[in-house]
Design a protein around this nucleic acid. Structure first.
Lengths: 179, 179, 179, 179
DNA sequence: CTCTAATCGAGACGGTACGTCGCGTCTTACG
DNA sequence: CGTAAGACGCGACGTACCGTCTCGATTAGAG
């Protein structure tokens, strides 16, 4: 597991996938394309990942957890505006990879995965919610809508992080929190 | 052109697709499966549609336009709450097909198509928006978020149309309109 | 089954296999090579045959049965010499295909198959055999040894059919029959 | 060259091959299977042998020479019957390995190799042969037919060595020698 | 009510990508 | 510091679908 070759191969595959995800739809990316760009044998891919999604999951795994760590506070923190801006700063600091994952061809998969993870942690945090709006509705909505706005932002690259944070807070977080 | 056989075949294909879309992911549906369930020859599919997406587009085309007609008013009407409830009533009256299209395996395709159409009509309507929030951000957000909530609603089948309309108005429309 | 395309494809595959079997060892022949030479799609091969051996079996099937019809009489006929010469004439009249099958790279497979078929028919014919020499020994021996000599003959192409028939009769059939 | 470890590894590989050859076809035996059964590292195989056939050759090398030493006399000795019986005694005394090599999955390779070696020594011995029956025909025939009978014998395990020797002498050696 | 042309079912076909397996080489971590 | 363990490139395999194509066998709808 600590073999240097393994790390090298996986890194190459991950970078190839990210590069391709920025060019075309995730579903249209071929494993052959990935291995070719990574200058790795075709069969080698399957020695590391079961399929394309597994590679994507591996690529996104850490980032998604970090992203979740940034998003959840926005929903429970006292100062939601600051939390939203902080989220945008985090995303902005990893613009390249976030763009590939959230706005690229794999965005649908990434988003649903993040929604899934958020749902899994929904029980942990006690989100104060007004009557009728249950967490199983609010959490997916907040996550999905936030990701949608972030994807738009990363694609546009026009607004600064503070402005974008304010928009997210106003369009998504605020309404969700307004008890 | 008005050959009865053609209409019969297309209807059979459309129903087969809807049925399958309720069972599995759109991407996993095979043209062979569609034709088999429609009891139609395999090659016959291609006499009517170029590929799977073309059939989906045909199936959704009318509904999507109607849906758009229902959604846009909510964004510009004076009484947004009534418009939202009206939208939910419309969706509820076509629960089966809306569920298949919005919450089923083809939802990703359907949603992006609807966002695209809404964007194309964004110039038509003069949405009053506060400074900084341009229509090219608000429209996609409003449409995507609304569809997300509707999909959740159709899946849950717990809330009535009035309640759901209120939620949409509160979480999406209201914030978008609040000047 | 009576589709003209099917017959054309199978013929093409059979001829390609025969051509290749004359050039290299059967085990080294690739299905890709066969389909390439037959100008047939790779996957098409598997629509007709489970694997290489199935194609070989199909190619050899009729010939093997005919060959068996020629060999068995030699073992039971009164005039074994004439029967042996007749066998050589038959083989000589189909020199090309017999050479490919018996002396080519697939010979091992073909021989064992023919021995198998002969064994299956051993019960049918009541071969008069001396005590101790049971048919389950004599038949495989006679068939295998005869095929060995025929393969040598086809490779050499020096002796005429009458001479070769005499040799087979003397080295194999005679000893087997001498009760 | 006389490293004890080397000898141990080669012995292990040889025994593993023999064991496997008794179970399945030689062509279906995997190098990975051999090394696994020999409890030897996969790459270690290639430090000793170029490929599977090389190992087989090494395993069979000595035995094949001994076998040849036993067979050739039968063809030139005065008392062919005694020589044949002697051959069977030799084979019977090494029943296990001979069974694996001659009747097992590698039999085709072994037989052709033995025929090859016999042919190489055909010039050495001056086989008295009747006109028309040249040694380049008689030797391969005699060797191949004898091996065929031996394989059958080893598989059946019914007849004693004397009886079997008589059969070989009668069906193969006698006819070959009969001037 | 027929005739003619469009539509249909059936399914073979070439092709592309998949995921697997085994070979033989080459690297690496470990004893 | 040598060796087992095993990662790797390669190439063949066999499978699944796609989209194209040809074949007859219906079956509409115009005359």
């Amino acid at each position: 597991m600590t073999d240097a070759r393994i790390a090298r191969t996986r890194t190459a595959l991950a970078e190839a996938l990210l590069a391709l995800a920025g060019e075309k739809d995730f579903g249209e990316i071929t494993i052959g394309e990935i291995t070719a760009r990574a200058t790795v044998g075709y069969a080698t891919f399957f020695r590391h990942y079961e399929d394309k999604d597994a590679l994507l999951a591996d690529v996104a795994d850490v980032l998604l957890d970090e992203l979740l760590e940034q998003m959840l506070p926005a929903l429970i923190a006292a100062d939601t505006l600051q939390a939203s801006i902080s989220l945008c700063r985090f995303v902005g600091s990893r613009r390249a990879i976030c763009r590939a994952l959230l706005a690229g061809g794999a965005s649908a998969n990434i988003r649903s995965e993040l929604v899934r993870r958020a749902g899994a942690r929904a029980t942990d945090l006690s989100l104060p919610h007004p009557a009728g709006l249950t967490p199983d509705l609010l959490i997916p909505h907040a996550v999905a809508a936030t990701l949608g706005l972030l994807a738009w932002w990363l694609d546009q690259d026009r607004l600064d992080e503070t402005t974008m944070g304010a928009i997210i807070d106003r369009l998504v977080i605020g309404p969700v929190r307004s008890g």
